[in-house]
Amino acid sequence: MPHEFDLTEPELTADDLLVLEDPHFGPETTAVVTGAASGIGQATAVALAANGLSVIGADIDDDGLTETVDLADDIAVAGTIHPVTTDLTDDADVEAMIEVAADQGELRYVANIAGMQHIASIPEFPMEKYDFIVDIMLRAPFLTAKLAMPHIRATDDGVGAIANMSSVHGHYATQDKPAYITAKHGLEGLTRAIAAEGEGTLRGFSVSVGYVLTPLMVNQIEGTADERGISKREVVEDVMLGQARTKEMMTPAEVANLFVFGFSGHGKHLNGGDMLWDGGYTTTYE
């Protein structure tokens, strides 16, 4: 973290974004990004637009989507972001989201990023919360893939990719996040299933990171500090990043760049695999 330990989400600038030359990165190509109204989803929508793509930014938060479009305009991205209000628990909304993407151009890329969290032990976990989390984070990505795959296959070369936002919690489990962990492990399986059916040109991959400096995460840090009577620095370095070797939270832009790389031709051998970018969180221990 910065020396003064600033927990403000960094302002996204054009210099933060990975921009690559790719034959499919142009206005004729569309990409769907869910959860595009904030955090990682917002940064990914802007990053893909910076690479010249026509991006369908989907979220239930209209105001947040407007902020995403404004952010893209502020940094003068080469592509465009088309906001589409989408309730991922509504099948008709998901179908409409994909149809808008197909109408805008050649649908080649999907980034399933939308997610949420609820903290409770398994015996105390409300089933309505479990159902909602699994609907948003596993069922909706499955339906999105089901609807998007025929469009990707219908392009002239069948090249495209469906990427799923996983997590270190797609690799291991901690206490009191059972629905989130279940969904993330399921996403790893969905990723491999997409790869198995994609015939090489239609790829599936996932992105797994640790803690990312988003407004939601800042709220969790401040709440944990108050609850435990410790400093915010101690929350991040000892509680959240205690197992990691890199004592720094990622930024949304850094995660967004992983999606850009994975979608590009540089990622053509990334198929069924996971981009584990966690600072050693899941691969080292003391």
Rank of each mutant, 00 (worst) to 15 (best):
N112A: 11
G64C: 07
A145W: 06
L138P: 04
H82G: 01
G158H: 01
M127R: 13
P123N: 06
T86P: 04
L138H: 08
T66E: 14
L48N: 03
I75Q: 04
L143Y: 08
L143R: 12
Y109K: 05
H118Y: 14
L48Y: 13
N112K: 07
K129C: 00
T80S: 15
E95K: 13
N51W: 05
V55G: 00
I122C: 09
G115W: 02
E67L: 05
N51S: 01
A114K: 02
Y130H: 00
L53E: 14
A111L: 01
V134P: 04
H82L: 13
M97H: 03
D90T: 13
E106F: 02
L48M: 15
Q117D: 12
D87M: 02
V55Y: 00
D70K: 14
N51M: 04
A50Y: 10
A72G: 15
V134W: 03
A145S: 14
A111F: 10
A102W: 02
L107T: 11
P123D: 04
V100Y: 09
D156V: 11
A72M: 07
A101F: 08
M149Q: 12
P141K: 06
I119S: 11
G115A: 14
L138E: 06
T89E: 15
M127L: 15
A58V: 05
T89G: 12
D59N: 04
R153F: 04
A58E: 04
D91L: 08
H151M: 05
E106V: 07
D74I: 03
Q104F: 07
V94Q: 07
S121V: 10
T144D: 06
F125W: 09
R108G: 09
V55M: 00
P83E: 07
T68G: 09
V134G: 03
D157N: 09
P150A: 04
F142T: 11
I152V: 15
V159F: 00
E95L: 10
V77C: 10
Q117H: 11
L65Y: 07
V77D: 10
L107P: 14
A120W: 02
A101Y: 09
A72E: 08
E128C: 00
D103R: 13
A154D: 15
F142N: 02
F125K: 09
R139Y: 08
Q117L: 14
E128T: 12
E99F: 06
L138T: 03
I56D: 07
M97E: 09
D103H: 11
V100H: 14
T68F: 03
N112W: 05
Y130R: 00
A49W: 12
V84N: 01
L65F: 08
M116C: 08
A96P: 01
